[in-house]
Write a protein that binds this DNA or RNA. Structure first.
Lengths: 327, 327
DNA sequence: AGAAGTATTGAAAACGTTTTCAGGTAAAAT
DNA sequence: ATTTTACCTGAAAACGTTTTCAATACTTCT
């Protein structure tokens, strides 16, 4: 059988309570500490987390639920969260919903059962709605995806403004017929769509909007049809990197050259954004900072549960490359 | 306070034991089951996992430790493992070491403390060595990274053969001076290097090997130097997708056209492999299957601890694109 | 030297489940 | 009608820690 705190205590010649104090940071004499540490080392004792958590009711674990791990944006978020949590001496319980509300709900229950100390979530649109009905006995922080008014702490990018920037940039290049393709399933897609429409109106241009679920095949088909129609746009904004990829494929399939025949601008600066030819103009999101701030928000909320709600809105950076430069 | 099994029992008018049986799948009468389920629903009861695990000594949790989440290969592995575990009714405790042996060791301890039911690891080279010294009281499965002889179950791709395939393909295109850049920190890098050297020798060609840590800046600098040296190779094999990216950047920086001035072939079929121009010839790894099989190996080992060691070697698929076609 | 604190310690309770064990009831077999 | 069998149930122990509480040993103060 595996070695428990009692075995260590016996070897060290002290009580289990003293062993616990040495490991948990209570006050003990140097002599006892030394004996205990020696016994721990010699036995290779590892505390049983289940027992510790049960008794102390503290888990030192942060839950993280993201919507789509395959999206490099979320892998970056995950990395940043883990790294920040690690520094704060907390563990991360990670879950990926794959944009499936059913799995999302299951994982939310999981987190309750695990009694995590805090939870960071990038919810699906449906999940965001249903979150209002849940009650958690730990703090919850929304990351990336949140509406204007939430009853949780929130860390987001300013999607509205960022999209407007893209529109204005394209317009300044002389493009008039600017289309937009937005994710139908995420709140960020919606916000970007609204920013786009508002910017178009304020420039006196007519918006041309399409909304789609974020799947590669659907998007590429739709874009190919769009690109080969007689009234195709001169430029198009893609609300996520999957769509951007589909747009490149569609342009290739329909024989359109970028930016000569059609200009492209999207979201998320990925490794390949500058690798393809021409490089893609994108909004670069402050991912590392978002992850770091989310962890810090959770920890602050754990420490002071009654502090006023925080809403951190970070701005994106518009990285201009050749895909949006009028020849 | 949060509601416990006793509260549910009281409301349902039964004993805590019966509640446990209803939830855990013991034998109970329909009447009791109904009452309990009603009480569970009305109270919103969620079992305390810590207590359950402590008492039952079963965690229904699989640990997963990968070396580098940013590498899309590992995000795909992670997804596959999670999805398979989910179907088997198990949770996944995920950790990312970022190729840091120190963190890796911490996470291994961590898994012991969590008393996971089984563990899947893609170890660093150093970690792979030190694993021999550990003793775990749960099964451990190595994924992607393992030597020929291991005392654990193993799921890997045949890196040796796959690399030979690449060499032979390049040679068949008429390339003679074929170089290779391999990751210095992972066992897969080493295996691919050996496959490359062996293939070169058997073709009567002289290997030109470089080994580097997998960091973008270092790799790009080295490659630029290589590409602009008088004795630069006609073709080059890159042992991971980060190197492949660096090679594209280096080719661009030094003004070399692909494949006219230099041919390129690498590992891992990523979204952008076919998006760049020309498309990149790669070995596509059977990631989904690797993840699925790893979970299945863990579960089998849990069920029959004394079964003989399993070593599953999957073959990669050589996807030929224009980057390796002699003009 | 005695009193009054201040660390340090061990015994035992507690955390919320599951599991064992023995008892009870109802159906089936004699 | 009695025994056997099968099934269901509740009381209580157990899981491995932390924490409370009271007791002991050591300082410091008067």
């Amino acid at each position: 059988m595996s070695v428990g705190i009692k075995d260590v205590a016996k070897i060290a010649g002290v009580s289990p309570a003293s062993v616990s104090r040495v490991l948990g940071g209570g006050s003990v004499s140097d002599k006892v500490r030394e004996q205990v540490l020696k016994a721990v080392k010699s036995t290779g004792y590892r505390p049983n987390m289940a027992a510790r958590r049960l008794r102390s009711n503290r888990t030192a674990t942060i839950g993280l639920i993201v919507a789509d791990l395959v999206n490099p944006f979320f892998t970056a978020i995950t990395q940043a969260v883990e790294s920040a949590a690690y520094k704060a001496g907390m563990r991360v319980m990670f879950c990926n919903t794959g944009e499936d509300p059913e799995r999302e709900e299951m994982y939310l229950k999981f987190m309750q059962e695990e009694r995590v100390s805090g939870l960071i979530v990038a919810p699906t649109t449906q999940g965001l709605k249903s979150l209002r009905k849940w009650s958690f006995d730990f703090p919850l922080v929304l990351i990336d995806r949140a509406r204007d008014k939430e009853k949780f702490d929130v860390i987001v990018m300013d999607n509205h403004t960022a999209t407007k920037e893209l529109v204005i940039h394209l317009h300044s290049q002389g493009y008039q017929r600017i289309g937009g393709l937005f994710g139908a399933t995420s709140i960020t897609g919606e916000q970007r769509k609204n920013g786009y429409i508002e910017a178009m109106h304020s420039l006196g241009l007519k918006p041309e909007v399409k909304s789609l679920p974020s799947t590669a095949i659907v998007a590429q088909n739709e874009l190919e049809a769009w690109f080969s129609s007689p009234d195709r746009p001169e430029a198009v904004i893609l609300s996520n990197s999957l769509f951007t990829r589909s747009a490149l494929m569609a342009a290739r399939a329909t024989g359109l050259r970028i930016p000569h025949d059609i200009a492209i601008a999207g979201f998320d600066d990925e490794p390949w954004s500058s690798l393809v030819d021409p490089g893609i103009t994108v909004i670069r999101q402050p991912v590392e900072m978002m992850g770091k701030e989310a962890v810090s928000a959770v920890i602050q909320r754990i420490e002071t549960p009654d502090a006023p709600l925080r809403r951190l809105v970070l701005s994106g950076e518009c990285v201009i490359r050749d895909s949006s430069q009028k020849p």
